[in-house]
């Protein structure tokens, strides 16, 4: 088969790059492109152009779209009309996870406990300069005086160690 001329090649190049030519058509065109720099440049130009059409990112279909459209169609909604507002397909009864609540309450309780202990400590503990050690004998003497004040007067003991009781006589 003879090589196609440049005009014929130019007409075949788009189909060749689009994968639409049979091998019988493509083989002589390939040979022509190898031999003809001008046609090769034209083919490269079309290849460059096609590179602007990249595969786009996949489209996310909105959740529940099919059910919504089918419901609208059977409800008599016309094309161009907005879909009626409907409740979500599944009953919205979100199960509440108790863990965040428990954690929150625990942290609040821990904070309160800490603050309370601080307040107690500040209220009852003397400051550093007030921490003066009293001499021990004085404290003991004070205790003795207190005991003496609270204890009734002692009854003399007899020789056997028995105390006389009022009215025994």
């Amino acid at each position: 088969m003879t090589k196609p001329k440049c005009e014929q090649a130019a007409a075949l190049v788009p189909g060749y790059l689009d994968g639409e030519l049979s091998e019988e058509q493509a083989a002589p065109l390939r040979r022509h492109l190898l031999a003809c720099p001008e046609c090769r440049t034209a083919a490269q130009d079309l290849t460059n152009l096609r590179r602007w059409f990249r595969d786009p990112e996949p489209v996310a279909v909105p959740q529940g779209f099919a059910a919504r459209v089918a419901r609208a169609a059977f409800s008599g909604v016309e094309p161009g009309q907005p879909l009626p507002e409907v409740a979500p397909p599944e009953p919205v009864a979100p199960r509440r996870d108790p863990m965040p609540f428990l954690l929150g309450m625990t942290s609040v309780a821990a904070g309160l406990l800490f603050a309370f202990s601080l307040v107690l400590g500040m209220a009852q503990q003397p400051a550093g300069e007030q921490l003066v050690a009293e001499p021990l004998p004085e404290i003991l003497r004070d205790l003795d005086e207190l005991n003496a004040a609270e204890t009734p007067p002692s009854v003399p003991l007899d020789a056997r160690g028995n105390g006389a009781r009022r009215g025994d006589r």
Binding site: V59, V61, F65, A66, A67, V69, A70, R71, A73, F74
Partner: peptide, 14 residues
Amino acid sequence: SQLSFQLLVERYQG
């Protein structure tokens, strides 16, 4: 059948 139409929509929506 509304469900059949829904299946058609699901099949071609993407």
